[in-house]
């Protein structure tokens, strides 16, 4: 199927292909919703990750806390946010990290009305900025 939405810049649309690819990564992330799992992960991250048959690239992205990398490998933001929460990172701090901005800079941008749609609609607009 044609994916018109792939033209939206700076965005990973979580479609069936990404969902299939990211299944075990997402199941790992959501497991951290529960306190007992967070403790097991903290005690031995590698052993805990081994419970989920992720790809090597996904495992490395988790180790590196490569937040955009996880999305590219099929992760979904609502799942990766559980990993962020496990690390004590708020949703807004997580958003800042993914945009490459400092937390205060990102928060400031939001207070001033957020990221404008102008210049951010398509990959061509995005690249020509």
């Amino acid at each position: 199927m044609a994916k018109e939405y792939e033209d939206i810049p700076g965005t990973f649309v979580f479609d069936a292909d990404r969902s299939r690819e990211g299944y075990h990564l997402n199941m790992f992330c959501i497991s951290l919703r529960l306190a007992e799992n967070r403790e097991a992960f903290k005690a031995d991250p590698e052993a805990y990750m081994a419970l989920y048959p992720m790809t090597d690239a996904q495992r490395q992205a988790v180790r590196d806390r490569a937040w955009n990398g996880m999305l590219e490998l099929g992760g979904n933001i609502y799942y990766t946010a559980k990993l962020a929460a496990n690390d004590g990172i708020t949703f807004q701090e997580l958003a800042a990290k993914m945009t490459g901005m400092a937390s205060e800079e990102y928060r400031d941008m939001m207070v001033k009305g957020g990221r404008s749609i102008e210049g951010n609609r398509s990959k061509i607009e995005w690249e020509n900025k």
């Binding site: 700076g10 965005t11 990973f12 958003a95 009305g113 404008s116 749609i117 951010n120």
Partner: peptide, 17 residues
């Protein structure tokens, strides 16, 4: 309403929309 939580375009807001 308008919001994007993920990747490099996070923080998008579109009041006109």
């Amino acid at each position: 309403m308008s919001h994007q939580l993920q990747a490099q375009r996070a923080g998008l807001i579109n009041p006109e929309f």
